[in-house]
Design a protein around this nucleic acid. Structure first.
Length: 664
DNA sequence: GCCAGCTCACCCAG
DNA sequence: CCTGGGTGAGCTGG
C-alpha cells in the first residue's frame, strides 16, 4: 500500500484541445488548483515513550500554504459549518475528560444507560469542533494527506461500528439508527473530522488509486466524492463573467450499460429524467446540474475522478466502491433510455500511467471463474482443512514451496495445559442476543456484544469472550466469529524480497475476522530457546507492540463513561505459539510498521477449559491482492536495550513511511 | 447576506 | 425483488 503513495498523481492538464472549445471561456485560472499532489506532509513529533504509527496516533498539524496565486475561487465548494468558530467555551470540558487517565469501565448495568443521539440543537449548544482536539488543523481539513485520509476513515468506521452495536443492543434512547453510516457521516461532518473539504479537480490528496470504500459516505468524509447519493460531483467556479461548473468525480455503479468493451473506458449516463421508472412516461434529461458540468468538462478535458461501484460477491446486498483514478471525457452524445427519453451519454477514458485498480478486480473475477493463471504451484496448501482452498503462487522465482509444515487450523495444547480458569458458558437458547445481559458471555464482554450483526469486530478489547462448545446457544450464534474458519479466498504467494506472504482475492472490510494464529502452544520459558534455534514462527503476546487507536472516539457520542474505549492494556495475557511445525495461513503473514491487520486475544471454552486464541482482524479496508501484514512487535529484552540496537533483528522491508528499520 | 424549507440523487438495509 | 427512511448540498424566496 505504501508503495503506491504519490503514484496517483498523473501528468496534469498538459494539452487542452482548443479546437474543441466552442464558445466556452477557457478556465485557465483553474490551473493552480490542479497542481495539488498527493504528497504526504512530514510527520511531526510524537509524544515520548512510544511512536504510534499513523493514522492512529494524533495526526500532526502541517500548516501548508494552499492559496494559489490568481486561482479561481471555488464557491460553495462545501457548506460552511454553522457553528464554525467559537468552540473555546466547551472545549475545556472535553479536555478534562480526555486527560483523566484510564479507568475500568463501569459494570454492565451502569453501561446500559441510554444514549442520546439528538440532532445538535442549532443556535443553542453548538457542537464542539473536535477536529482541532484530535489534531486536525484547518489546513488539513481543506487538503488531505495519506495519514489524514486514513485517520478520518478509521474514525468513520469505528463510529459506525459502535453505532451499529448500540442500535442492535437497543441502547439508543432517541429513535433508531437504521443507517449507522449516515449517522456516523453526519456526526463527523458537524464535528469537523473530515478532510479534502476543498473541492478540486484531479486526485484527492491522500486517497490512493485502488482504495476501497464500503459506503458512499466514506467518500464524502475524505472529499473523494462529496454528494451522499448523486453520481456526479460538481465544482462551482467563479468565471470571468459568470459562474461555471466542472465535473470533478463520478460514481459509476454499473447500473446501466457502462460495462465497457475496454476495461479503461466507461460510458456514463447523465442524471435526471425518470427514464428508469416503468410506470411513467419518458422524460428527457435536461442539460443542468451534473449533466451541464459533464458537458463543460467534455470541452475542458479536465481530469475526473472515477469511482467504480461493484456488487460485493460475498455479500450481494452490499456494494464496494473502488477509486479507479483519473479519467477524461473523450466523447459525448445524446442517447435514448429504455423508456424512450433522451439521456446524455459520456465516454470517459482512463489516463495512462496510473496504477491498476479496477482491472485487478476484473482479473480476480476471471480467475475465480476458472481462467488459468501463471505461477500456480499448489491449489490448496491446507489440503482440505479450510473450507475455501488456499492456493500457493510463485510468479517471482523458481522456489517451489515453503519449508514443510503441517497445516493445522487452530491451536494444539500440550496435555493439562490450560491458560485460564474454567467457567460456565451461557444458557441462551438459539443465538445470543445483543443487549441481553442475562447472557453470561455478553456480561463477560462488559455488556457489549463484541461483533456487529455481520460479524465485524466493534472495538479492540483486552479480551474478547466468545461463545464456545460449553454454551447452550446454537453453533451459528454470532458470538463465535473467530471459530468459523477462513471466509476470504486467501493465497500464499512469493514476495519480491521477503519470502512468502499472504494476500486475499476478496476485499476485506475493516474489523473483519481474517484468521487465527494457529500452531502449538509452547511454554513461555522456552521462547528465547526457540528464537536461538532460528524458529521464525513464534508468536508471543507479551512482546511490545506499537500502540494505535482503532476504537471510536468517545467524545463523538455523549457517553456515560468517556474512557470506555481506552485501548491501553497493562499487560496482555501471556501466550506463546510456535507455527513452525503446525500452522495455518497466519504463519505466512509478514511484518509491517504500517500494517493492515492487527491481532486481538479471543477466549472461549473447549473441554471445560478456557483457552485463549490470537485472532487477526482487518485494521482497515483491504483491497483484493494486497499483502496482509501485522506488527511483529519487539521482544521485551530488545526493547529494554533500545529499539535502535539492531542486534539479532531483521531488516524491515515493509517500505512504510513510518518504517523503523528493523523488526523481530 | 442569511437561512428555513424544498428538491434531488447510480444509497443502503430489511 | 421492492420499499422507504434518511442524508448532504443545491436552490429559492422571504
Amino acid at each position: 500500500m505504501e508503495g503506491r503513495i504519490g503514484k496517483n498523481s498523473v501528468p496534469l492538464h498538459g494539452s487542452i484541445d482548443k479546437s474543441k472549445i466552442l464558445d466556452v471561456k477557457p478556465l485557465k485560472s483553474l490551473i493552480p488548483i490542479f497542481s495539488m499532489s498527493s504528497q504526504t506532509p512530514p510527520l511531526g513529533q510524537y509524544p515520548s515513550g512510544f511512536s504510534p504509527f499513523f493514522p492512529f496516533g494524533a495526526p500532526q498539524q502541517t500548516p501548508t500554504e494552499v492559496t494559489p496565486n490568481g486561482a479561481a475561487t471555488p464557491i460553495r465548494a462545501y457548506r460552511s459549518t454553522p457553528w464554525a468558530g467559537d468552540t473555546s467555551s466547551t472545549m475545556e470540558g472535553f479536555s478534562d475528560q480526555h486527560t483523566s487517565g484510564k479507568k475500568k469501565r463501569g459494570s454492565p448495568k451502569s453501561r446500559s444507560a441510554k444514549l442520546s443521539l439528538d440532532k445538535p440543537k442549532r443556535s443553542q449548544e453548538p457542537p464542539v469542533d473536535l477536529g482541532a482536539l484530535v489534531g486536525i488543523s484547518p489546513a488539513q481539513k481543506d487538503d488531505g494527506s495519506r495519514e489524514m485520509v486514513n485517520f478520518v476513515l478509521m474514525a468513520f468506521d469505528a463510529l459506525r461500528r459502535r453505532l451499529c452495536q448500540l442500535e442492535e443492543a437497543k441502547e439508543l434512547s432517541l429513535g433508531s439508527v437504521k443507517r449507522a453510516d449516515l449517522k456516523a457521516c453526519s456526526i463527523l461532518m458537524t464535528r469537523g473530522i473530515r478532510t479534502n473539504m476543498r473541492k478540486r479537480v484531479g486526485s484527492a490528496p491522500g486517497v490512493e488509486i485502488g482504495d476501497i470504500f464500503f459506503f458512499r459516505t466514506e467518500m464524502c468524509v475524505v472529499g473523494l466524492h462529496s454528494p451522499s447519493m448523486s453520481g456526479i460531483d460538481v465544482l462551482h467556479i467563479r468565471g470571468e463573467f459568470e459562474e461555471e461548473t466542472l465535473a470533478v468525480s463520478i460514481v459509476s455503479s454499473g447500473e446501466y450499460d457502462d460495462d465497457a468493451e475496454d476495461i479503461d473506458v466507461i460510458t456514463y449516463t447523465g442524471h435526471g429524467g425518470n427514464f428508469f421508472k416503468k410506470d411513467k412516461h419518458a422524460i428527457d434529461q435536461k442539460l443542468q446540474r451534473g449533466n451541464l458540468a459533464l458537458d463543460r468538462s467534455s470541452r475542458e478535458l479536465n481530469e475526473i475522478r472515477v469511482i467504480r461501484g461493484i456488487r460485493d460477491a460475498v455479500n450481494p446486498n452490499a456494494k464496494v466502491y473502488v477509486y479507479d483514478g483519473l479519467y477524461k471525457i473523450e466523447d459525448s452524445w445524446i442517447g435514448k433510455a429504455k423508456g424512450g427519453g433522451d439521456v446524455f451519454k459520456y465516454k470517459l477514458a482512463r489516463m495512462s500511467g496510473q496504477p491498476s485498480a479496477y482491472s485487478v478486480w476484473k482479473s480476480v473475477q476471471k480467475w475465480k471463474s476458472g481462467s488459468s493463471r501463471t505461477g500456480l504451484i499448489l491449489a490448496d496448501i491446507s489440503n482440505g482443512a479450510e473450507s475455501i482452498p488456499v492456493a500457493l503462487f510463485n510468479e517471482v522465482d523458481n522456489v517451489k514451496a515453503p519449508i514443510y509444515f503441517n497445516y493445522f487450523h487452530s491451536l494444539r495444547h500440550p496435555k493439562s495445559f490450560s491458560l485460564m480458569q474454567p467457567s460456565n458458558g451461557c444458557t441462551c437458547t438459539k443465538a445470543c442476543v445483543p443487549g441481553d445481559l442475562n447472557c453470561a458471555c455478553i456480561r463477560r464482554n462488559e455488556g457489549d456484544f463484541p461483533y456487529t450483526g455481520n460479524g465485524v469486530l466493534v472495538n479492540r478489547m483486552q479480551l474478547v469472550h466468545e461463545c464456545g462448545p460449553t454454551c447452550q446457544c446454537f453453533p451459528n450464534c454470532k458470538n463465535r466469529v473467530s471459530q468459523t474458519g477462513l471466509k476470504h479466498q486467501m493465497e500464499v504467494f512469493k514476495t519480491k524480497d521477503r519470502g512468502w506472504g499472504l494476500r486475499s482475492l476478496d476485499p476485506i472490510r475493516a474489523g473483519t475476522f481474517i484468521c487465527e494464529y494457529a500452531g502449538e502452544v509452547v511454554d513461555r520459558a522456552k521462547v528465547s530457546e526457540l528464537v536461538r534455534e532460528g524458529n521464525e514462527y513464534v508468536f508471543d503476546t507479551t512482546r511490545i507492540y506499537g500502540q494505535f487507536k482503532w476504537n471510536y472516539e468517545p467524545r463523538l457520542l455523549e457517553e456515560v463513561n468517556p474512557n470506555e474505549s481506552s485501548e491501553d492494556y497493562a499487560m496482555p495475557y501471556p501466550l506463546v505459539i510456535s507455527a513452525k511445525s503446525f500452522g495455518n495461513v497466519a504463519r505466512f503473514m509478514n511484518h509491517s510498521c504500517s500494517p493492515n491487520v492487527f491481532w486481538q486475544p479471543v477466549v472461549y471454552e473447549e473441554n471445560n477449559q478456557s483457552y485463549m486464541h490470537v485472532a487477526f482482524f482487518a485494521l482497515r479496508h483491504i483491497p483484493p491482492m494486497t499483502e496482509l501484514t501485522y506488527d511483529y512487535g519487539v521482544s521485551r529484552s530488545d526493547h529494554a536495550e533500545g529499539i535502535s540496537a539492531a542486534k539479532g533483528r531483521k531488516k524491515c522491508l515493509c517500505q512504510s513511511l513510518k518504517c523503523c528499520g528493523f523488526y523481530g
